[in-house]
Structure formats: C-alpha cells, structure tokens
Design a protein around this nucleic acid. Structure first.
Lengths: 218, 218
DNA sequence: ATCCTCAAGTAGACAGCGTCCACATACGCT
DNA sequence: AGCGTATGTGGACGCTGTCTACTTGAGGAT
C-alpha cells in the first residue's frame, strides 16, 4: 500500500542493490538540506523499501550518514582535481606551484559554493578520522588533503617554501579556505554576494601564498 | 506527576522567569552537545514546566536555538575581550597592533577549544545575519567581529597594513581561525593533540600577520 | 528435483521529538 | 470585586530512529 506511493515498485522481493540505493538517496538529501536532512526512513521510502530494511546494510542512521559523508568527500576531491587539471607544468616551476595551490584553494571554495549541502555534510560532526580510506578519493586516487599536499610540495620543490615552512603547511592552508567556506555557508557571512566571496577567496589564497613563507618580513 | 521528576518544583503557577530559564537550560545543553543537543522539551523539563509553556516565549524550537546562539556569541566575544585586555599599548604601536591581532585570533581559538559545544552553536546554520545586535557583545560592547576590526585598525594605524590591505581584512583573518577551529572541533583534525593545535594556531596567526600585507614578496 | 539455510525484507511497536488546539489559572488593572 | 489576558496545562498528531519477531525466497547440498 505504502509501497505504491514510493518512487519505484520493484517486483523482486530482493532489492538487489539496496545499500547503494540508500546512499544515493541520502546523498541527494544531503545535497539539498545538509547533514541534518539525511533521514533514514526517507531514504528507505525512496528506495521503495520498509524502514527496517536499512538495518540489514547499516547499523543505524549514523552509519548511513557516514557513507553519505564519504561520498561527499569524494566529490570535494573531484572538484579540486578538476580545478587542478587546468594548470599544467610550464617552464616556470614557481608559477606552476603557485597555480597549483590556487587551484586547490579555489576548487575547494568553488565546490563549497556550488554544493553547499554536500560540502557541509562532508565536514560535519563525526570526523571520519584521518582515514586513508580510498573511498574518499577522486579519480586521481588522491583525497582533498593529498591534493593540497601535492600543491604544497610543488611550492617547496620550486623553492617558494623552505623545508621548515613546508612542514604541516596543509593545516594552515586548509584552515583558511575551510573557514571562509563555512562562514559563508552557515555563518554570519551568509548574505555576502557570491561575487564578493569569490574575490575574497582570491585574496585569501594570495594571503596564504605569502603568509606561509616565514622568510619575508619580520 | 512528571513535574516531580524535574529539577525544581515551583509552587507558584507562574514561573516568573521562564524565558530566561529556558535559555539557560538550552545554553547548558549546547555547551555539552552542540547545537543539535538543544532540545525544547528537555529545556522545559529542566525548568519544571510543560513542553508547551515554551511556546509562550518562543515561536518554536528554532527561536529558542536563536536565543541560545546569541548567548554563545556573547561568550565568544567575552573570551576575545579577555585575551585582548592582556595586551596594553606600550611605546611600540606596531608591537601593540600585532599583539592585538594575535589576541583576537588566539582568544577565538582558545574559546573554541575550551567550549566546543558553545562555539559550534555560536556559528551553526541559521546565520544571525550581520546583526548589530547588542545581545552578542561582551562587556566592552563589542562583538567578536568588532574586536577583530579593532585589532586590524591598530595594524593599519601603526603602519603595518596599507589602506588597501586593511579593506575587508577581517574576513580573511576570521576565515583562517574559524577554519582551524572547525577542522579541529568537528572536522578531520579531531584527533589532533591540543598542544599541536595551539602551536598551529600560533603559526596561523603569524601567517595572517604576514600574508595580509601585499607589499612584501611578489 | 527437493529440501534447508540464512541473508534480506516486512510488520508492528515503542519512546522521544516538535507542534497544534482547546482549556485552566491567577496577575494586575480598573 | 470583577475581569481580561498573559502564562501554563493536557492531550493529540505525525514524524523520527530503533527494537523484536516474523516472512520470503535465492542458492547450495543432497
């Protein structure tokens, strides 16, 4: 009876690919409404299945959310990778390094603006620990953090960053773009026009570029 | 019957200060569990009152949360102010300016580490807009943003920051510390030892200090 | 071909949540 | 003293996540 209401009425008793269907439904909910919007019962409804069926694939709502979050993290990585592919190594390694760093930062921010719900979900409460989990990566096989590391490595190798300044620089750079993204998405900067956000993003990455290097001013 | 279970059984029919009691209860819940933990029914329970009584003071749960959030924002401002009082203007205005900026950043991060729940609540989803709302301020009458502006003004006035670089610099600086705070509190940096967070915070503020100034490197 | 097993899905129930509606109380004004 | 109204109560509804018990049927062993 209720099943008819749902999206698709399957004829087989077995769904066949329920776990995946639930994650997909959850991902869409996250896309629209952020982490709080991913509700287990609704996912089962969209999959045309009874609520409890979900428990054959996830220990509970939290575990479903984890799966969705993981998917969101992959999207973030993909967005960065996309941006990064645009900058190819020319004859100037320093310019290449700088462009790489910018790509990471702007790719990150760009995704946050394009897909607020997924972005917020990707970085919501239960930290997926520092997982070398291959599920969070894009096609290149690198997650967002590793892509950032790559860009910073290029900075170092091209002589733009001393060994000491290179150390743990990912956390500094990451904090910066992540902070702006969140302030805009769910913070007091919510109403800031997107054009200004973009401009601010550019300045922000420039700031990081300069600020990471401790050799400059005193 | 249920009333007896609750904290305090009042004898007067009127509570007298229910709105405040609800916010206080909510604040404590936020302190412990973040924004999602502030639940209306529980607040009324702690106030020894029926659930619906809350609706005489708030349009709904969201409005209660708003009040709690506002209280949290005040705490943030207070924490920064506290840190800022430590640095008094000496004979070197530039050193004073730098110290001020550091105070804002470290006060912000310090509060985030000390009171994760309140911090997360303060900056959770529904942005309190850019409210010149006096409720969000500490005793000095300045909110977190204004305290940051003050520090940046000192940077500018002491010649550490050009007029152009001063422009909207609060957003850049803010993004930075906010990002680190959130990555640590509810992001992938969750398990990072607090000592390292502190060290990272110091580096971060240094980075901002250098990076804000576009006159340095190229 | 038949039976058996066991993973996968169903059915129904429970508590807790936010919220709506109708009703009760007593504070403070006239 | 009487009354209006701000404040609190009671009960209900639909939603959520989750528990326990039951059913279904696909695939391997016989």
């Amino acid at each position: 009876m209720k099943k008819i209401v749902s999206t698709l009425k399957r004829k087989t008793f077995r769904h066949g690919d329920l776990r995946n269907a639930l994650v997909t439904a959850g991902l869409e909910m996250a896309r629209v409404g952020g982490p709080d919007a991913v509700v287990l019962r609704e996912a089962t409804r969209q999959a045309g299945v009874s609520p409890n069926a979900a428990y054959r694939h996830f220990a509970g709502q939290a575990e479903l959310l984890d799966a969705v979050r993981s998917a969101c993290l992959s999207r973030v990585a993909a967005a960065i990778e996309e941006e990064m592919k645009k900058c190819r190594p020319g004859r100037d390694p320093q310019a290449f390094a700088r462009k790489s760093l910018r790509a990471v930062g702007m790719g990150y921010l760009g995704f946050a603006m394009r897909e607020p719900g997924m972005f917020r979900t990707a970085f919501s409460v239960p930290p997926p620990v520092d997982s070398p989990d291959p599920a969070n990566t894009a096609s290149m096989g690198l997650n967002a953090f590793q892509l950032l590391s790559l860009a910073l490595d290029r900075m170092h190798e091209s002589g733009l960053l001393s060994r000491k300044d290179r150390q743990d620089a990912e956390y500094l750079a990451w904090s910066t773009v992540h902070g702006l993204a969140l302030l805009v998405l769910e913070g007091p900067l919510h109403k800031m026009p997107r054009e200004m956000v973009r401009a601010l993003g550019e300045r922000l990455v420039s700031m990081v570029e300069r600020g990471l290097n401790s050799e400059t001013a005193n």
